[in-house]
Computed example of a mutant assay.
Amino acid sequence: MQFIDLKAQYRKLKSDVDARIQAVLDHGQFILGQEVAELESRLAARTGSKYCISCASGTDALLLAMMAFGISPGDEVVTSPFTFFATGEMIALLGAVPVFVDIDPETYNIDPAKIEAAITPHTKAIMPVSLYGQCADMDPINEIAAKHGLAVIEDAAQSFGGTYKGRESCNLSTIGCTSFFPSKPLGCYGDGGALFTNEDDLARKMIELRNHGQNGRYHHVSIGINGRLDTLQAAILLAKVDIFDDELAARQRAAATYCEQLSDIVRTPIIRDGYTSAWAQYTVEVDDRGTVQQALQQAGIPTAVHYPVPLHLQPVFARLNLKEGGFPHSERAGKRVLSLPMHPYLEPAQIEMIAQAVRQAVAGVTTVTK
């Protein structure tokens, strides 16, 4: 059994993907070819954003967004400690300081009620993470940012396709950033990402920054990066965009079945009213995770843990002097979360088998505990 079955997806899309790739091989425009512009147009239209700027990875998207705002050494960016390392990494790479705020224990996303206390005169931006596919609570975050004159950058690496109060993830703040890493709900066959904004000046800056700061050939107006999305990856994504809504619906069905079969024995995901999740992961909470995970492995069920060590406890951030116990909800989640197989090609019988194995594993832990 596959944790994420990309092979099944390719079998379904083989003719379209192969044709798209062959078209790129035929025209030979491997950098910023016509497929890149086509993809950006389609994704902008999907989110309702004025601009989509594709880039080389979700990590680069975060970097480019902060560079566009001029975030520099000594600045502070408020974010969540319960996320993939790239969120804090890109802040630190610019010499800025990640300022962590604990999560809402129900959604695993940053708790808006705790943000304002973390803002200082050095704060330049808030970077909420839309984890596991569900958007962060963006309205109060945007209100806080407006009050203090701050930018908001949504780290939507896992939530492209999710919605918040009828609006699409990536079009909920000043800039939305997403990833097209292969395992994401919309993924390519390598690294890829995109930025979304409605502001003309920011879009211009990000287009320049992703291509060495150029606003014309060999005319550099800023220090940028080589952050372009490969044409081949854009072509692959174009084939996948055509079935993306169908795949999102299949993820919803799989998640609903999981919840139905597991909610009485583990803590299943809580999706708030007015939200839809893209279900990048299906993540439960369990006691004695190591034992449960081992039992599932023995039953042939692959699992993953996203993320066992919150950012404030990572060795590289020891200089921030943040101690264990400072962000209790993030730390508790890191010890308890367990992600089960999730992709659009899960068969009902597979979900039934996984759920049964989870029930047996959890029951075994409960019996030993008693």
Rank of each mutant, 00 (worst) to 15 (best):
F3T: 00
D5G: 06
L13W: 01
D16V: 13
L25I: 11
G28Y: 07
Q29T: 13
L32K: 05
G33T: 09
G33W: 07
A44M: 03
T47N: 03
T47L: 01
K50D: 10
A56L: 12
S57C: 05
G58N: 10
T59S: 14
D60H: 14
T79D: 05
S80P: 08
G88I: 14
E89S: 15
M90W: 13
G95M: 02
V97T: 07
P98G: 08
E106P: 04
E106K: 13
T107S: 14
I115D: 08
A117E: 11
L131H: 08
Y132K: 06
Q134P: 02
P140R: 08
E143P: 01
A145W: 01
I153G: 07
E168T: 06
S169N: 09
P182R: 04
K184F: 01
T197V: 10
N198D: 14
E199I: 12
E199N: 15
R204V: 12
R210Y: 05
H219K: 01
I223A: 06
T231Q: 06
L232G: 06
L237Q: 03
L248F: 03
R253D: 15
E260I: 09
Q261W: 10
R267N: 14
Y282H: 02
E285L: 11
E285P: 04
T291N: 13
A295T: 09
A295P: 08
A295D: 12
G300A: 05
G300F: 01
T303I: 03
A304I: 00
A304H: 00
L311I: 02
L313S: 01
P315H: 06
F317Q: 01
G326E: 08
H329P: 05
E347W: 04
I354T: 11
Q356I: 02
G364V: 05
T366I: 07
T366S: 11
T367L: 06
K370L: 04
